[in-house]
Design a protein around this nucleic acid. Structure first.
Lengths: 134, 134
DNA sequence: CGGAATCCCTTGGGATACTG
DNA sequence: CAGTATCCCAAGGGATTCCG
């Protein structure tokens, strides 16, 4: 990655021209964000962590998510290879979800974001208050 | 942060109960994602990096963004204290944007995501293809 | 140049009801 | 239990036009 940690994406793309990966960083970021930057994906991945959870477990651990959105989100994550779905032919049915190896690598990013969110939450709130007051 | 890097959010929240920051990690992640997980914010922040760019510069460097969305995104980022807007009273007008110190800390996350996106892009594409083929 | 305002279509996503 | 199927509203966001 960039030698200079806070180099702009523009500069980064310049350094990429020509070789694999190419200057398409912007497009790829957008694609990843479309998947994991939606309303629930990152939260589902972060909640799974290294646990194995059932559908109803996830529903309980993620306050505010609807059954519908949990279903859709899990399907997408499964399609993208971040989550493994295991259904047991029992009655009543039991379905377990866990992260793939790829999914596990993303958890670290999720934690980085969570950490940043927690650390800067109040600063942002304050900035908003000041902005709105002008 | 968690000793175990890939611990679940559930486990992390458990370890947080009681003290400042609290078990609200999920809510805070959602709030941060609502800001920076939208369609353009992260890309704007990543593009700014440590550069100072004009409105039209950003418009050119971020393929696909509309004038409207760039305006709205910059306003939000300014409100949240991630971006500083400087308007010069000239004609024709000139407006420059750069990151605040807070914004700069987020660039590192942006780069982490970019890195992950680039590294795993093809794996995800492949996983999708396999999923769709079944 | 750097927006603001309007129009209008598409998507996201909640609520609810039903099913194997 | 773990979904699927509908309905439907609200928000997102592109295209276009106008303005200081």
């Amino acid at each position: 990655m960039p030698a200079h940690a806070s180099a702009g994406l523009a500069e980064y793309e310049r350094s990429c021209e020509g070789h694999p990966g190419g200057p398409e960083a912007g497009r790829m970021i957008r694609e990843v964000l479309d998947r994991v930057g939606d309303k629930w994906s990152l939260l589902v991945v972060a909640t799974l962590g290294d646990d194995v959870l059932r559908f109803s477990d996830l529903l309980r651990h993620i306050p505010g998510i609807s059954q519908r959105m949990l279903t859709l989100t899990l399907r997408q994550l499964e399609r993208d290879g971040l989550v493994i779905r295991t259904a047991y032919a029992e009655v009543p049915p039991r379905v377990e979800y866990r992260l793939t190896a790829l999914g596990a690598t993303f958890v670290e990013i999720a934690h980085t974001i969570a950490q940043w969110a927690i650390a800067n939450h109040s600063t942002i709130e304050q900035s908003r208050a000041e902005y709105d007051a002008r």
